[in-house]
C-alpha cells in the first residue's frame, strides 16, 4: 500500500535539480514509475516527495549527431524500440529494448529509470556496458559524463548521487566493421543470464571485442580476460567456445532462485559463444552484401 506523498512538477531541469538538492533523500526522481512504484507499494521504500521529470520534453528526445546517438533518459523502452534513429543506427539496441519485461512496462518505463535502478538483471544495462555508452548526470552543481562501466557499482547501486539526474545516454554508431549481439536466457520474469558483445572484425580476424555479462552478479561486468583472448584471433567455433570458458571463469555468481552458481557460470560460457557466433555471422553477411 502506498503511503502519502507529494508530486512535484518541475518545468525545467534547473528546478528539478533544485528540488533534489533541497529534499535530498526525501525525494525520488519519478518518470515511468515501473520500478519505483512497485517498491513503494511493497513498503520497501518510501519517499514523501516524487519529482516528476515528464514535463521536461527534451529529456525524452532521441537524436543522431554525426556518429553519436543521444537518447534522452526519459525515452521509454517502447520509444527506443521504435525510433527510426535507433532501428537504423543501433538495431541491436532496438532489439534489446523490445525484450524488456512486457508491452505495458515498455510503454511507461524509461531507459533512465531502468539504468538508475541498478537492477542486475537489466537488459539495456548489459548491452550499453558492452557498447561503451556514456551517461550524463546533471545536478545543481553542474554536469558530468560517466562511461557505463563506472556507472554500475553494485546491487541496486549506481554512481548517481541522490541530487543528480540522469539526463541522457550516448553511444556511438558502430563502425562498419563492428557488430553487436545480445543473448538472454530467462526462466522467470527477470533473466538468469544476459550477454552482450560488440565485435570489430577484419575479414575473419577479430580486431577487438567488448563483452559484458549481466544478471549473474550484483551488476553487469565487462569480461576483460575473455576480450583479451579474442584480440587478433581468427573467428572460429573453437575460439568462441574457449572464450566462453574464459568468460565463465570471470564471473562470480551466487546460488539463487534464478539458478545455481554453477549453472549460471555454464550459461555465461554458452551465451558468450552464441553471441560471438551471432555477431560474427552478422559481420560475414554484411561482408557478403558488400561484395
Amino acid at each position: 500500500m502506498l503511503r502519502p506523498f507529494e508530486i512535484l512538477q518541475p518545468e525545467s531541469l534547473d528546478s528539478a535539480c533544485a528540488y533534489l538538492s533541497e529534499y535530498g533523500s526525501d525525494a525520488a526522481v519519478y518518470a515511468g514509475g515501473t520500478e519505483l512504484l512497485l517498491l513503494m507499494k511493497e513498503g520497501l521504500v518510501h519517499y514523501p516527495r516524487l519529482v516528476d521529470l515528464k514535463r521536461l520534453p527534451k529529456l525524452s528526445e532521441i537524436a543522431l549527431d554525426d556518429q553519436r546517438i543521444h537518447i534522452g533518459a526519459l525515452a521509454t523502452h517502447r520509444a527506443i524500440e521504435r525510433s527510426p534513429i535507433i532501428v537504423d543506427n543501433a538495431p541491436v539496441l532496438a532489439h534489446v529494448e523490445s525484450l524488456v519485461a512486457n508491452v505495458r512496462v515498455r510503454a511507461a518505463g524509461t531507459i533512465g529509470g531502468n539504468l538508475c535502478f541498478g537492477e542486475p538483471h537489466s537488459d539495456p544495462a548489459t548491452l550499453l556496458l558492452a557498447w561503451g555508452a556514456e551517461l550524463e548526470l546533471v545536478s545543481s552543481n553542474g554536469a558530468r559524463v560517466l562511461p557505463a562501466e563506472d556507472f554500475f557499482l553494485g546491487l541496486f547501486e549506481t554512481a548517481r548521487q541522490p541530487h543528480e539526474i540522469l539526463t541522457r545516454v550516448s553511444l556511438s554508431r558502430l563502425p562498419e566493421d563492428s557488430q553487436a549481439a545480445y543473448q538472454k536466457f530467462s526462466v522467470h520474469e527477470r533473466p538468469t543470464a544476459t550477454l552482450a558483445v560488440v565485435v570489430a572484425m577484419s575479414g575473419s580476424t577479430i580486431r577487438h571485442a567488448r563483452l559484458a555479462a549481466g544478471s549473474v552478479g550484483p551488476r553487469p561486468v565487462r569480461l576483460q580476460q575473455a576480450e583479451a583472448l579474442l584480440q587478433g584471433e581468427t573467428a572460429s567455433p573453437a575460439l568462441f567456445h574457449e572464450t566462453g570458458q574464459m568468460a565463465a571463469r570471470e564471473v562470480d555468481p551466487v546460488d539463487d532462485l534464478y539458478g545455481s552458481a554453477e549453472y549460471k557460470r555454464h550459461l555465461v560460457a554458452v551465451l558468450t559463444a552464441r553471441a560471438l557466433e551471432q555477431a560474427a555471422a552478422r559481420g560475414l553477411r554484411r561482408e557478403h552484401r558488400r561484395d
Binding site: 515501473t34 512504484l37 505495458r104 512496462v105 510503454a107
Partner: peptide, 25 residues
C-alpha cells in the same frame, strides 16, 4: 499486482499500461 499478469490493463492515449502500478495522476 506486480505488472506481470495484465488483468489491470487499460489504454492510456492508446497505449497499454498496468493500472495497478500507475498513478491516477
Amino acid at each position: 499486482d506486480v505488472q506481470v499478469c495484465g488483468t489491470c490493463t487499460v489504454l492510456l492515449d492508446g497505449l497499454p499500461v498496468s493500472a495497478c502500478t500507475t498513478l491516477a495522476y
